[in-house]
Design a binder for these strands. Sequence first.
RNA 1: GCGGGCGUAGCGUAGUGGUUAACGCGUCUGGUUGUGGCCCAGAAGAUCGCGGGUUCGAACCCCGCCGCUCGCCCCA
Length: 425
Amino acid sequence: MTTRFQAPRGTQDVLPEMQPYWQAVNDAIRVVTRLHGFRRIDTPAFEYAGVFEKGSGDTTDIVEKEMYAFEDRGGDKLALTPEGTPAICRAYLEHGMGSWPQPVRLYTTHQMFRYDRPQKGRYRQHTQFDCEILGSTDPLIDAEVIGLLWRLYSMLGITGLGVRLSSLDDIEPRRAYIETLKDYYRPHLEKLSDDSQRRFERNPLRLLDSKDERDLPYKDAAPKLIDQLSDEARAHHEVVLGALEATEIPVSIDPLLVRGLDYYNRTVFEIVPDADARAQGTVGGGGRYDGLMEILGGSPTPGMGFGSGIERMILEMQRCGVTFDEAALADVYIVNRAEGASATVFGLASRLRSAGISAIVGESGKSMKAQMRGANASAARFAAIIGDDELRAGTVMLKDLGADGEQVAVELSRVPSVVGSKLRG
RNA sequence: GCGGGCGUAGCGUAGUGGUUAACGCGUCUGGUUGUGGCCCAGAAGAUCGCGGGUUCGAACCCCGCCGCUCGCCCCA
């Protein structure tokens, strides 16, 4: 017995029964991006590893622990795309999009690869819907992007979500804040949890995010970034907040919202189910990254965008009870029961399809009963039966598989038009 | 990377030390001479996740591995 293979850990097959969800998501993405004037871009499945090492930040978990990085046969250092934004920014620079009318609105759906421990809603390969608006610092751009994602979820029937919003200020003032934060925590360092002691050096903003009881006594009194934003960042944040509050979108300020990528400044946001405390409950999130283009070697170009996992959208759709009726496999199921009828049957199927009518041909070796069962299982509206009598007479027995089950003899050449008019009627 | 739970035909489950591992759904074939759904009958389909151990005997007990899952970390 040979080995039975399984899909690799953390990957999954999308079976036919799940395709309607994907179809619905992709359709809605097409609509919502059109409503906002976005154009589609597709970037490669892999990039030079440096795009993410420099772009996402080489001390982020995504790059440091989760990236599928490898050397190819020519010695190039490559990485399977772990997140979309740096790749799109690379394409922006590579193709001189700075000379297009600004800002440039781009979207994509892209496979993302991260080596992480799989859980529900967390996979090693997942699909992300990504939107980026490049070349504008207008805070209304931030609100637009958040509103676009919110609209998508609404169109998909997802309810019970909320937007968590914060501002990370600009890079320089943030550095100053981080020093204040470290000064605050430094005297207590010994008493903090092990995790937090690590975070103190690596990612001090995360100190505020801890749920460990040893850290809790210090959280409330700790200085919060959102309370001491620079004037520019505060003004920016207030426009974003005001714009969103003028809509139906429920927004809450989350001063502890920190995202796992280095390039964010000012606006950051996440959209999460408000009733669901699951750790991987975030359906979509993103923010502003005005410094990223320079990191990638381009001239300063502001940007704002998000990623949202399609697998997680579908989980949310299911949570909200969104279902789809099973579609018929064909309009006509041809029952093939006559000796020497193969050419006739094949020709009929072909003419039906040319007329835009879908057709499945039963297996000629199977009994009438078996083929009729096949017709029923296919949910076809009509069975077109060709037996010895019909073959001789140049007709087919056209049976309506609806409730009445009426059947009529139809001349072979007229089948497409008869079926066509019945389907329309 | 760390901790908990689970792993029996395609799917959902029963069986928790003792003859050929059971049931439902699904699949296939029939229920006479060319007709689906409902019904009835029959058939196929299981290395009981994998490997080792305990035992006269293991799906069942023990250990390791793999996978799934829940929580932590992190993220979409």
